[in-house]
Write a protein that binds this DNA or RNA. Structure first.
Lengths: 150, 150
DNA sequence: GTACAACTTCAAGTCGACTTGAGGTCAAGG
DNA sequence: CCTTGACCTCAAGTCGACTTGAAGTTGTAC
C-alpha cells in the first residue's frame, strides 16, 4: 500500500502518518523510489493508536506499549490504572453533565440562586481549583473546526 | 483583598489571575499603588470559570457567559447542548474504561486475540479515525507533573 | 519522452492556556 | 528613612500533536 491508500483507509492525513513514523509509532516497510510503502498491518496499529489516544494516553505512552517489536506488550497493571483514571474522569463529567442538565431547566431566576447550581459550583471549585492534579481536564468534543476545514 | 489572598483562597497562581484579568474574565476593583485589589466576588467568578473549564468550555466561551455585566447570563440552550456533548464523551469513555478493564484481566495470550479487545479496537477506529469531530478528546487526568512542581 | 500529480524532506507555524524571566516599582515593617 | 520582598509589566517560552509551506524528486499515464 502506498501512503494515499493508508490515508484513504484510515482517514488520517498523510502528514499525520509521516509524523507518526517519525515518532516511531508506525513503520513503513520500504520505499518505492522515494515513496513510502506500508503493510496492511499499519492499519491495525493506527487503530490501536486511536484507541490509546481516546483512552487518554499520550503518543509517548502509546509508543512504549507498541514496543519496538511488532506486537504490543501492554502492561496489564497500566491498563488497570488507566481504567481507574478514566473512571474518575467519568464520575466528574457525569456530575457536571447532571448539573448542566439541571441548570438548563432550573426555574430559579438566576443560576446563582439555585442550590443545585451552587453545589455544582462547589464541586468544581473543589475539583479544579485548589487541587494539584485534575487540572487540564479538557474534552473539547467537536472543537476541530479550524483543523479539518483548510 | 490583594492578589496574594486570592491566590491563597483560590489555589490559582498569581500569573493565572493576571492572565484571566487580561483576558477579561475577571476584574480587579482597583489599585493600591501598582498592586491590584480584588473584591471577594472574584472568588465566585473563579469557581464559575473552573466549573466551565471542567465542563469543557474554552475561556473564550466562558467569557461570553460571564458577560461584561456583573452577573452571568448563560444560555440555557447552550447548557443543554454542552450537557449532550458531555454525555457523548461519557459514553465513549465508559466503553473505553470497560474495554481496558477487561483487557487488564483477559486470559487471551495476546490482546489481539481477544474478541472484546478487537471490538474495542473497532470502536476506537470508528470513533477517532475516520470521523471529523471527536478528535482532540484528551482528558489527561493527572498529567500536571511538570506544571505543578517547579 | 514528457508532463504532472503525488510524493518527498525539513523547518517553521499553530492552538489554548498558561508560565517564566528580566527588569522595574513600591507599600509596609523595623 | 531605608530595606526588602511582594507586586508590577511585557515579551517570550512551553507543551503536545499536528499542520503548513517551500522547494525538490519521481512514478505513471498519455
Amino acid at each position: 500500500m502506498d501512503i494515499s491508500e493508508v490515508v484513504r483507509r484510515s482517514g488520517l492525513p498523510a502528514s499525520t502518518l509521516r509524523y507518526y513514523e517519525e515518532k516511531g509509532l508506525i513503520r513503513s516497510t520500504g520505499r518505492r523510489g522515494l515513496h513510502r510503502v506500508f503493510s496492511p498491518v499499519v492499519l491495525e496499529q493506527l487503530a490501536l493508536i486511536a484507541l490509546g489516544r481516546t483512552a487518554g494516553f499520550s503518543l509517548d505512552e502509546i509508543q512504549v506499549m507498541l514496543g519496538s517489536g511488532g506486537d504490543l506488550h501492554i502492561d496489564r497493571q497500566m491498563l488497570s490504572s488507566k481504567a481507574d483514571e478514566l473512571d474518575t474522569t467519568i464520575r466528574k463529567l457525569t456530575a457536571m453533565r447532571d448539573g448542566l442538565r439541571h441548570a438548563a431547566v432550573c426555574s430559579a431566576p438566576s443560576h446563582m440562586e439555585c442550590p443545585k447550581f451552587r453545589r455544582l459550583l462547589n464541586l468544581a471549585a473543589a475539583g479544579a481549583i485548589g487541587e494539584k492534579n485534575t487540572r487540564n481536564l479538557k474534552s473539547s468534543h467537536l472543537k476541530t473546526g479550524k483543523n479539518s476545514n483548510k
